[in-house]
Amino acid sequence: MLTSKNRSYLKGLANNIEAITYIGKEGITDGFLKQLDEALEAREIVKVSIQKNSILDTKKAANEIAKLTGSEFVQAIGRKFVLYRKSKNNPKIDLPN
């Protein structure tokens, strides 16, 4: 569970990254989840963009995806959201206490 201090720190990190995964009209697919899982393991923090042709609600989709991937929802702005999950093999982000 992220504290408000952790969440604030991660929001600052997310400011400088581009979305690397996208959700299209197909919605949340197994392929998307696999790609996102690999990205979370490699980067720990990932920004996801929901395409305009998708009918998904950003916050609902973000919370559902966080549950499915075992990650933490950090923030949602517009049609983008940020997820965080500490890497099992190669942790890079040191969260503040």
Rank of each mutant, 00 (worst) to 15 (best):
L2R: 00
L2Y: 04
S4F: 11
S4K: 09
S4M: 11
K5A: 13
R7A: 07
Y9M: 06
K11Y: 03
G12H: 03
L13P: 00
L13F: 02
L13C: 00
A14L: 03
A14Y: 02
N15G: 09
A19G: 15
A19W: 06
A19D: 11
I20L: 11
I20M: 12
I20Y: 02
T21I: 15
T21V: 14
Y22L: 06
Y22C: 05
Y22D: 04
I23C: 06
G24H: 05
K25A: 11
E26T: 01
E26Y: 01
I28A: 08
T29P: 02
T29I: 05
T29Q: 02
T29V: 06
D30K: 13
G31S: 08
G31A: 04
G31F: 07
F32C: 06
F32I: 01
F32Q: 04
L33S: 07
L33V: 02
K34M: 10
K34Y: 09
Q35D: 15
Q35Y: 12
E38W: 03
A39T: 10
L40E: 03
E41T: 04
A42Q: 13
A42R: 14
A42E: 15
R43H: 14
R43N: 10
R43M: 11
I45L: 10
I45E: 02
I45C: 00
V46P: 05
V46W: 04
V46N: 06
K47R: 14
S49G: 15
S49E: 15
I50Q: 14
K52Q: 11
N53F: 13
N53A: 06
S54L: 05
D57K: 15
D57A: 09
D57M: 09
D57F: 10
K59I: 13
K60H: 09
A61T: 04
A62Y: 04
A62L: 10
N63V: 14
N63A: 10
I65N: 05
A66L: 06
K67A: 13
K67G: 06
L68H: 06
L68I: 01
T69D: 02
G70T: 08
S71Y: 00
E72W: 11
E72D: 13
E72V: 07
F73D: 05
V74Y: 01
I77P: 05
R79K: 14
R79N: 07
K80T: 15
F81D: 12
V82D: 11
L83E: 00
Y84D: 07
S87I: 03
N89Y: 11
N89M: 13
N90E: 11
K92M: 11
K92H: 02
D94S: 14
L95G: 02
P96N: 03
N97Y: 14
N97W: 10
